[in-house]
């Protein structure tokens, strides 16, 4: 049986365990809520997290590659990058997948570890995509902060009559 097929067979068990581990990065009371509430509008963090991980599992199984993984990673990292996680804690869920897969698929280590090496490479790829997205989200936050400050600054000058007809958002935006 090839590794993709093995992974597909164990997908639900791995996903469950991965979701559990990811959600456990929140305080216990929060984790309980994130796991139990299934309404995506009442619990957008929990449900978005689940959907992201689900899509990432599919990307691994089909070997869809970095771009597809990045699309799946964006929603979960967009959330975690504005919560009070350190950068490593925000992205650590990607690395936890290695341990979880090994636990659920011990046979991956056999045959000279070829399957596990291939999978590890894919997860490494996922981690690199995660770094890119996390940093892009943080940059967006700082851009939003800078833009608001700039608008206030130019707005003040305009109100004070010190500049005339200057666009509040200034050049270059």
């Amino acid at each position: 049986m090839n590794s993709e097929k093995l992974l597909a067979e164990k997908k639900q068990a791995i996903l469950k365990s991965w979701f559990q581990t990811t959600v456990d990065s929140y305080p216990a009371d929060t984790a309980r809520f994130l796991k139990s509430q299934k309404d995506p509008f009442a619990n957008p963090v929990g449900q978005t997290t689940y959907r992201s991980l689900d899509a990432l599992m599919d990307a691994l199984i089909t070997g869809a590659g970095r771009e597809v993984m990045a699309t799946a990673l964006d929603p979960i990292l967009r959330i975690r990058s504005v919560q009070t996680f350190t950068p490593s804690a925000a992205t650590s869920f990607v690395f936890s997948l290695k341990r979880i897969v090994r636990k659920h698929l011990p046979e991956f280590g056999r045959d000279g570890g070829l399957a596990i090496n291939g999978l590890d490479r894919q997860i490494d790829e996922m981690a690199m995509a995660a770094f890119d997205i996390y940093v892009a989200c943080r940059e967006k936050i700082f851009e939003l902060k800078a833009t608001e400050s700039r608008k206030q600054f130019f707005g003040s000058l305009k109100r004070a009559g010190l500049i005339d007809e200057t666009e509040a958002d200034g050049p270059g935006l």
């Binding site: 957008p44 963090v45 959330i79 009070t84 936050i141 939003l144 902060k145 608001e148």
Partner: peptide
């Protein structure tokens, strides 16, 4: 502006 992370996190359920 300085609490942008809080604003984005708090605004997420609406934005979702």
């Amino acid at each position: 502006g300085e609490n942008m992370e809080l604003r984005m996190a708090g605004g997420f359920p609406r934005a979702n």
